[in-house]
């Protein structure tokens, strides 16, 4: 019986030790993916919003065989147009970005792939990727904003970063194309009290939105546009402003804005 109890103990010990090894012993992810989204023509970073209406990075791990269809691993780009994730498992990934630019993955009306400009990368150590995209619009500051009576007046310029012809060549085969998609629908001056100003972070007491119907904006492309904030910003505040505009076209079912650089304004 002594032998029996010992053997039971022994068995139990094996079971317990075994259980220890069954813990999640997979090394924590510590590879890094870093990347930029740049304008294919000018090489400038494509500025965006920080959040789901900005540039989204979607990764699918291809080297993990246990799931038949890889789970989406999404994160959002920084507002300057670069992105970084330092907690990625080592492996082979498909990486795509979606934002206010010509979609990298284009399908036709029956779901067949017309183009796939996503990247497949082996992520190990610090892996850098760069996406060259064709943003819809380019927004620039013209001169310095002025402040009077708690209202900021800024001048911005909106130009097309992709020609209508090029847009049509790429988008039309996807089905449901209309020239209306190229129309600029709204130009905005976002105001916020934090630097992360954009569609997800704006103070609607002061921000201004100008809507355009049809192709009414066409004549103003490339022309300086003067926008003034609404409401009265109390004296002594520091705010951050940003110009934005978008066209009547949704990527991944969201109509996203193109932006210019956020600017700090101290209200005297």
């Amino acid at each position: 019986m002594k032998y029996l109890s010992q053997s039971i103990l022994c068995c139990l010990a094996v079971v317990f030790f075994n259980a220890c090894t069954k813990l999640d012993n997979y090394d924590e992810p510590h590879e890094t993916i870093k990347g930029t989204v740049v304008d294919a023509v000018t090489g400038e970073l494509v500025l965006t919003d920080q959040g789901s209406e900005g540039t989204r990075v979607r990764m699918n791990e291809l080297s993990w065989p246990r799931t038949r269809v890889a789970t989406n691993f999404d994160f959002f780009s920084m507002k300057e147009g670069n992105f970084q994730n330092t907690k990625v498992f080592k492996g082979r990934y498909n990486v795509r970005v979606d934002g206010a630019f010509i979609p990298l993955v284009r399908l036709n009306a029956t779901g067949d792939t017309l183009a796939n400009e996503t990247k497949v990368v082996n992520i190990e150590g610090v892996t850098e990727v760069q996406f060259k995209v064709q943003p819809f619009l380019k927004i620039e500051w013209v001169g310095k904003p002025t402040v009077s009576n708690g209202k900021i007046t800024a001048v911005i310029k909106v130009t097309r970063a992709v020609t209508p012809a090029d847009f049509k060549t790429k988008i039309q085969p996807m089905g449901g194309y209309s020239d209306d998609m190229l129309n600029v629908t709204d130009v905005r001056l976002f105001v916020s009290q934090v630097p992360y100003v954009g569609f997800r972070e704006w103070d609607n007491r002061y921000s201004t939105q100008v809507n355009y119907t049809g192709n009414a904006f066409e004549a103003q492309l490339g022309q300086p546009i003067t926008i003034t904030t609404s409401g009265t910003i109390p004296s002594g505040r520091t705010v951050f402003i940003r110009g934005a505009a978008r066209i009547n076209y949704a990527t991944e079912n969201i109509k996203r804005h193109n932006y210019n650089v956020a600017m700090r304004v101290d209200v005297p």
Partner: peptide
């Protein structure tokens, strides 16, 4: 409806209608 697209796993148009 303006938003549509294909399912990632099946390629089926799970939301929206074929524009045609």
């Amino acid at each position: 409806n303006k938003i549509t697209g294909f399912g990632q796993k099946t390629g089926v148009r799970v939301i929206g209608f074929d524009p045609s």
